[in-house]
Design a protein around this nucleic acid. Structure first.
Length: 488
RNA sequence: GGCCCCGUCGUCUAGCGGCCUAGGACUCUGGCUUCUCAAGCCAGCUACGAGGGUUCGAAUCCCUUCGGGGCUACCA
């Protein structure tokens, strides 16, 4: 990544929380964070809440919680503060107002009295005439008569930035040199009629004031960059102080369009509730638009910060693939130590009311986890896997019921009960030995047939952890009782 | 419509002029293993959007074209 100055790296993640942070936001945050950590720079978290109609306190808090949960810690921002705060744009209104009046005084900006209806009408006309739509510059100069009329009508003007003739060229760290002809960058609004600032003003002012050196953000903001640069110019920032821009490719849904509720769940909270690990989400998201090369895919958060460079970021959009996320999540779960797995599984077991959280329950879960560790892809799957161990009112799932009802299954269950009841030592070896001798050798049955019936009787499902270990964990009393209950 | 961005297996990607009859991963299919389900192992399927150049040689460079996306707000 070209560094245009020798200033220390400062990267910001600046979402506008108009809803739960989604996969695309997080991918951006992850890259921002990784770049800051990679360079030893500062990671700044700023909330862009200038759109007061759409941003809510709940969404802001949710954004903070999500970043924390993912482990993307910030050096400056909400809750931790910092030397260039406040980090909520709604608390920086006076700063924007000050710059706005400066722009007005210098002639970089001007008041525009055109009403929304008038603008819309003229835009429509432009579209029809096949001309580039955009503000036509009508209010760049206003006659005294018109001004008086506007005032008498009580019109509240917006503040508009004057775009000079010419073009803006900048070097995007991912896309290379990009040029926008100002004929297609109309004069844009900086301040609303009610005096509140717009994104375009706030983002540029803040990035300058907060000494941001690198702007890694979504590709949707690419075409707003000339406007942002125009504000820098009006602020008197010298070009070699402009931040380096890097516009990240989109994360798209299963089909073609941008990710949305329609084509895949996008809220990070949704993934957390389903038992996805934050490190798995980050690892997967890191692979969307970036790769460490050398056929590597599995990286820890630490390795991500070591390996991440903007040079290796793609310029083309990536499709989000739930299957791959699940595969990576499974890999990450298998890498967990038993204690970690236990710690992370307990909340799900409690939530699903499998356990209440007693020491005895937790101890049993801990002894059971090794046999399901490699069988689950998400933490939420611990529930269906272990529920049979704690069920007070045990029942066989409806789908499996017929499989223990036929004559052969009944014979298997009766025989099993007969050979297991006198067992003096109850562990998976003794259980297996007894059942194999009786069912496989004695009754000459296929293991999958014979054990299948016992499995359903004991665990309630034809899918379960290994049978003999499951019976050992369940204990002889409950195991035998369940077999007995399954016999007609 | 205009401006801008993008284009390698179904998906994520490796590739940055010869190592490419294009590699890895996920998915899918088949097999091995096996008490179910997984995990693991093996095998298979499938890609450089198209057309022109440049070059001894192009997935890699250039042009055109087609396709996808973004922006075109007193949203961000």
């Amino acid at each position: 990544m070209p560094t245009n100055t020798s200033r220390p790296v400062r990267v910001r993640f600046a979402p506008s929380p108009t809803g739960d942070l989604h996969v695309g936001n997080i991918r951006t945050a992850l890259f921002d964070w990784a770049y800051a950590r990679h360079t030893g720079g500062q990671f700044i978290f700023r909330i862009e809440d200038t759109d007061t109609d759409r941003v809510t306190d709940e969404y802001i808090q949710a954004a903070i919680d999500t970043l924390k949960w993912l482990g993307l810690t910030w050096d400056e921002g909400p809750e931790v503060g910092g030397p260039y705060g406040p980090y909520l744009q709604s608390q920086r209104l006076d700063i924007y107002a000050e710059w706005a009046s400066k722009f007005l005084a210098n002639g970089d900006a001007y008041y525009c009295y055109c009403s929304s209806e008038e603008l819309e009408a003229r835009r429509e006309a432009q579209r029809k005439a096949n001309v580039a739509p955009g503000y036509d510059g009508k209010c760049r100069s206003i006659s005294a008569d018109d001004l008086a009329r506007y005032h008498s009508e009580g019109r509240k003007p917006v503040l508009r930035m004057r775009m000079p003739d010419g073009s803006t060229t900048f070097t995007d760290a991912i896309r290379g040199e990009v040029t926008f002809d100002h004929n297609f960058v109309p004069d844009f609004v900086l301040v609303r009629g009610d005096g509140s600032p717009l994104y375009t003003l706030a983002v540029a002012v803040d990035d300058v004031m907060m000494k941001v050196t690198h702007v890694l953000r979504g590709e949707d903001l690419l075409s707003s960059t000339p406007r942002q640069i125009r504000v820098y110019q009006a602020m008197g920032v010298s070009p070699d102080e402009y931040p380096t821009f890097a516009h990240l490719p989109f994360v798209m849904g299963q089909d073609n369009a941008k990710l949305s509720k329609r084509n895949g769940e996008v809220s990070i909270a949704w993934y957390r509730d389903r038992g996805f690990l934050p490190e798995a989400i980050c690892n997967y998201l890191a692979l969307l638009g970036w790769s460490p090369g050398e056929d590597r895919e599995n990286v820890t958060m630490q390795e991500l910060t070591e390996l991440f460079t903007v040079e290796r970021v793609h310029s083309s959009p990536a499709r989000f693939d739930m299957k791959k996320l699940e595969a990576i999540n499974g890999d990450k779960i298998r890498e967990l130590t038993l204690d970690e797995l236990l710690k992370r599984s307990l909340p799900f077991l409690k939530r699903d009311q499998v356990i209440t959280g007693t020491d005895a329950e937790i101890a049993l879960v801990k002894t059971a986890l090794p046999i399901i560790h490699e069988r689950i892809a998400t933490l939420a799957e611990v529930t269906p896997m272990l529920r049979f161990l704690f069920a007070e009112n045990f029942e066989i799932e409806p789908d499996s019921l017929p499989k223990v009802a036929d004559d052969q299954a009944q014979a298997v269950l009766k025989k099993s009960l007969e050979v297991l009841t006198p067992l003096s030592t109850w562990n998976h070896d003794s259980i297996e030995a007894a059942l194999r001798a009786a069912l496989i050798e004695g009754m000459e049955l296929k293991p999958r047939i014979a054990f299948g019936a016992v499995r359903i009787a004991v665990t309630g499902s034809h899918i379960s952890p290994p049978l003999f270990e499951s019976m050992e964990l369940l204990g002889s009393a409950a195991s035998l009782a369940r077999i007995k209950a399954a016999i007609k």
